[in-house]
Simulated scan of single mutants.
Amino acid sequence: MLQEATSNVLRFHNYLQSRTDARVKDYLLMQSPVQMTSILLGYVLFSVYVGPRLMANRKPFHLKTAMIIYNLSMVLFNAYIVYEFLMSGWATTYTWRCDLIDPSSSPQALRMIRASWMFYFSKYIELLDTVFFVLRKKQTQITFLHVFHHSFMPWTWWWGITLTPVGGMGSLHAMVNAMVHVIMYSYYGLSAAGPRFQKYLWWKKYMTAIQLLQFVVVSIHISQYYFMEKCDYQFPLWIHLIWMYGVFFFLLFSNFWVQAYIKGKRLPTSDDGPKVNGTAGEHVVVVANGKHLQNGHAHHHANGKVLMGKVKEI
């Protein structure tokens, strides 16, 4: 039985080698699914088990400078990815309808390959989002949705750009996602910069709305395939998967929106309620270790009581 299982694994590995787009074989993390799967499994293990236990008896790290640099870098990197997607077809030769995959080695096709790989690789850099949460002991931010999204996205993209030539109408969701991340990391960068920038962060809850909008745009665009009289997209299976992906994540993020901003389960309790201008009212925030939050920062109180403090809505 073991010999048969080994034979099946080798046969599948050879199949992947034969089906892998030759234009992406030399890119980092594209040679084997073992590499990327190992990284992502390690990420999940660190996020939910190893990291929190390592930090359990340690003080949170203050990573302000590192976070500002990281977020600014991600803004610039995602902006560049969007530009490359546009120049590779979406702003030049694509119709935004039945755009086929270009399997050639033309300069534009190779540029699309490179843009797609950069998008794929950016997903591994984004794993640092969770590392920062762990090191700063922000474990409540590491939700199922957060971990699943960060691990599932790069895993599925490896199969997409390995087994099918990159490009065509199936690549729109990557460009849209990179656009969203330009906005997201701009927000995170301002947030990391300190209290003096808090007045510019009134639009935090709309970040989830922007996420929802991207899934609507992607789903509507890819749904065209089902209503076209003829569209010879070379790999229709990926059309179906992208549509299911858009709907699935729309439902997940919708649930988050309902829980956070309608039911208020992720909002701090308030005696006064939020003020009309969108800033938070006075909140009593009780923390298990006897600390209180004031303007978003933890401080010790000598008698162990909790003081009134202002905290921003999340």
Results as ranks from 00 to 15, higher is better:
K305D: 13
L128Q: 03
G168K: 10
Q198R: 10
M55E: 12
V287D: 14
R19G: 01
V284K: 10
F61V: 08
T143S: 15
N277M: 05
P165A: 14
I68Y: 01
H300I: 00
T279N: 06
D26W: 09
Y70A: 08
S171R: 08
H62V: 12
K265W: 10
A260V: 00
I210R: 00
V247Q: 02
R23L: 04
P236L: 06
M112K: 08
G304F: 02
H299I: 08
L251A: 15
L212R: 04
I262A: 00
L128V: 14
T37V: 13
T6F: 12
K205C: 03
M153L: 12
Q139G: 10
G51F: 11
P274L: 02
T37H: 11
M184H: 04
I183D: 00
P195C: 05
L45R: 00
A56V: 06
V286P: 00
W96M: 12
G42W: 09
T156W: 01
E313N: 11
G281K: 06
L212T: 09
I113F: 01
T92I: 13
V276Q: 09
L145M: 11
T143Q: 10
D272I: 09
D271A: 11
D99I: 07
R53N: 15
V287H: 10
M55P: 13
Y261K: 01
L212F: 04
Y187H: 00
A174Y: 10
I81C: 15
Y245S: 05
T208C: 03
M1P: 13
P195G: 10
E4M: 11
S122N: 11
T92D: 05
Q3N: 14
G296F: 02
I242G: 01
M153E: 02
A193M: 09
D21A: 02
V176Y: 06
P274H: 03
I314S: 06
Q31I: 05
G194K: 03
Q259M: 12
K59L: 11
S88W: 03
F77W: 07
L128F: 15
T20W: 03
D129C: 07
V216D: 08
N71L: 01
V131E: 00
V48K: 15
W96H: 13
F12K: 04
Y27P: 08
Y15W: 15
G264Y: 02
K310Q: 12
R114W: 13
I69D: 00
E282T: 12
M169W: 12
L72T: 12
E126F: 07
S105R: 12
S104K: 06
W90N: 09
V216H: 07
T208A: 01
Q108W: 01
A298K: 07
L29V: 07
V147M: 02
N177E: 07
G309V: 10
A178S: 15
T20R: 09
M67N: 01
I142Q: 12
T208G: 07
M179D: 06
K59S: 15
A66E: 13
S151R: 03
D129T: 11
M228P: 01
F144P: 05
T208S: 09
F152R: 00
V9Q: 07
D99H: 11
D271W: 06
L54V: 15
G264P: 05
G273N: 04
T140S: 14
L190S: 09
P52S: 09
G281P: 05
L63T: 12
Q17E: 14
Y94L: 03
K205V: 00
G264R: 00
V182S: 05
K199E: 08
S254V: 06
R19A: 13
L110S: 07
I68N: 11
P33V: 09
H299G: 00
L252G: 03
T95P: 03
